[in-house]
Design a protein around this nucleic acid. Sequence first.
DNA 1: TTCGTCATGTAATGGGTTACATGATTAC
DNA 2: GTAATCATGTAACCCATTACATGACGAA
Lengths: 207, 207
Amino acid sequence: MSRRSGVLEFAVLGLLRESPMHGYELRKRLNTSLGVFRAFSYGTLYPCLKTLVAQGWLTEETAPDDPLAAPLAGRRAKIVYRLTSAGKEHFEDLLAQSGPDAWEDEQFGVRFAFFGHTERDVRMRVLEGRRSRLEERLERMRASLARTRERLDDYTLELQRHGMESVEREVRWLNELIETERAGRGRAKGRPADQGRDDTDPTDTTT
Amino acid sequence: MSRRSGVLEFAVLGLLRESPMHGYELRKRLNTSLGVFRAFSYGTLYPCLKTLVAQGWLTEETAPDDPLAAPLAGRRAKIVYRLTSAGKEHFEDLLAQSGPDAWEDEQFGVRFAFFGHTERDVRMRVLEGRRSRLEERLERMRASLARTRERLDDYTLELQRHGMESVEREVRWLNELIETERAGRGRAKGRPADQGRDDTDPTDTTT
DNA sequence: TTCGTCATGTAATGGGTTACATGATTAC
DNA sequence: GTAATCATGTAACCCATTACATGACGAA
């Protein structure tokens, strides 16, 4: 009945904010533009769209046989979903939230992806919340490791070490982002954490 | 009815292989010894244990009131689960599998955690399978990024860059592990990928 | 005309959590 | 005696996938 996913709802509203789309295209965007995340199946997406329409946040616009009615993709478009003003408002509300939900693993990615539409103080709170969440996790891992280190074999140990390093690395990343935001270079232009990297050649990254 | 989780089943069998335990302790172990992974709730664990008993892989041993019957933890032990020989056999079968399932995100972690009980050629196949899986993913990310780079804002771009770097980092980690295995230092002693790190003092974490 | 992609959906199932219910044991 | 932790379980729900069903369009 409800089908309230959180991440999916947020991502759909955010993507439709920019331009109306039909379900099939929406799903592709979830894999590419926002593509670092999981790809939702149609069995998830379409029912979700239905409920968003029922909530009054989207409208369905059917473009049945008229080829002139679908100039967007150049091809047939069956059901185009458009964000209503109520939906826009709701999305703004979601964007303004900076509570614990935004720090969780599943939510944080989408939240970050729409930072371009997010107020700066909210961005700061989300980043800092995320960081302290990860630092707590790190401390728990360290404590647990200290207690059980002797009883673990090499592979288990290596796995834990690598896991902790991954978290530590994300903390460092967040630190850079927070610093950039603090310096005021994080609005919309001037890519955050720019250190002369080249996306096509990511050598010498760690070590 | 079935409640066949894959990861949980594998982890439970593997943990019980070392010593019999009751459910509560089993769950703690899943968070600590194997703790890099998700923590399963009791609502998942107990039904799972029931089905494993029904399969004949575990036996329930109730130690009702006798304090002498529970020398393991020094305290009351209600239902102790013990691996049967059939269960042991089944676990060995699972350990020997090196198919695509073992390369997926959810399975790989547990598989790696039990590498100490895994044959060397199986370890190699799993590691290499995992690596090529990640390299495919990386290529898809690169292709998608090349197609959509111009249309993306700074934050989305930064998110993708960080995501790709994470995957690249894991590939490098796998490369080290594979090299170590190949050199023959990966059996049980001689910790893999040892580069003079010290687990107890992971300073230089932040900046 | 057949194949690949576009496009939309539904029913069954899977895998897991939350909230709840219960009660024993230990420590204070 | 009361709070925390140990210990076991169940029912209701949640989120999402899989498999299936349907069909239109474009290109070979």
